[in-house]
């Protein structure tokens, strides 16, 4: 079960590590007694507890839990939020009591087992779920980030894993910034199939003379102005590479560059 789905069904507010909402939890452990959490809690679980103390977080961390939900609208103090943040646990708070929270998660689990599977089995592999084209005009910094923001919200609407969305958004953003800094304009094609998300960006610009060099960390051709804006610590290609499952860069000097970024929803062959 995805933590995000649990968040939605409990109408919980996230107190720490919103970025990890896309992670899966394998079990739910409902208890207020921390010695029990340590004794019986399974790794990668989510803890439902009414005990609002940093100790709840520490126990959950020791038992290798991924998320903690505080019940009855309880809030832990700053220390707990900090601890959750540092130790990569999602911390949430819901107004529900233990019974309602358990029931909703049961309902979610029973209903949920079906949906994600259907996506893979009943849809043809290359069935296109979403296709969208965008235009980027270079040198208009006021619009910087527009395409990546759009892509992000579109993927969110169709229910893509938030962790993956984040990778796509970061990659798009880096690629978009390159267009603003180095090119006249670009076309972006977004395609989503049940198997993958593909973003193809084709720009009209000066091109990259040495793609291999540009892929190195720290390589930049950004101007001082652009650096002052916080960009240009590199072409962003290494960062894109880190965030994509597959990256193809083709470039012709004086004409432009094409980036094909692929993010797998299902591992090839699986």
């Amino acid at each position: 079960m995805k933590i995000e789905a649990i968040r939605d069904s409990l109408k919980a507010s996230v107190l720490a590590r919103e970025d990890l909402l896309g992670a899966e939890v394998e079990d739910i452990y409902a208890s207020d007694l921390m010695s029990d959490v340590l004794a019986f809690g399974l790794p990668n679980s989510l803890l439902l507890t009414g005990l609002a103390s940093q100790q709840s977080l520490i126990s959950a961390h020791m038992a290798e839990f991924k998320a903690v939900v505080l019940l009855r609208g309880k809030r832990a103090k700053d220390g707990a939020e900090r601890f959750a943040t540092e130790h990569s646990m999602v911390l949430m708070s819901t107004r529900l009591d233990m019974y309602d929270a358990c029931v909703r998660i049961h309902a979610l689990r029973d209903g949920n087992g079906v949906q994600p599977k259907e996506l893979g089995t009943t849809q043809a592999v290359d069935n296109i779920l979403l296709q969208q084209k965008f235009q980027i005009e270079g040198n208009d910094f006021s619009k910087a980030g527009y395409v990546s923001t759009e892509v992000k919200s579109m993927l969110k609407k169709i229910g893509v894993d938030p962790v993956l969305i984040r990778s796509v958004a970061i990659s798009c953003y880096e690629a978009e910034m390159n267009v603003f800094m180095h090119a006249l304009r670009a076309k972006v094609d977004l395609t989503v199939t049940p198997r993958l998300i593909e973003v193809m960006l084709t720009d009209e610009g000066k091109g990259i003379p040495d793609v291999e060099q540009a892929m190195q960390e720290g390589f930049t051709t950004a101007t001082d102005d652009q650096r002052a804006l916080g960009f240009g610590s590199g072409l962003g290609l290494p960062n894109i590479k880190r965030n994509t499952d597959e990256l193809q860069v083709t470039s012709e000097v004086g004409k432009g560059t094409t980036l094909v970024m692929r993010f797998f929803l299902q591992r090839p062959g699986s």
Binding site: A30, S31, D97, M98, Y99, D100, C102, V103, H106, A107
Partner: peptide
């Protein structure tokens, strides 16, 4: 049974909060 599992059964029996 652990608490969480038992709640699923109670819910099935129609005993609500």
């Amino acid at each position: 049974q652990p608490t969480f599992d038992l709640i699923g059964k109670l819910y099935g029996l129609g005993i609500a909060t």
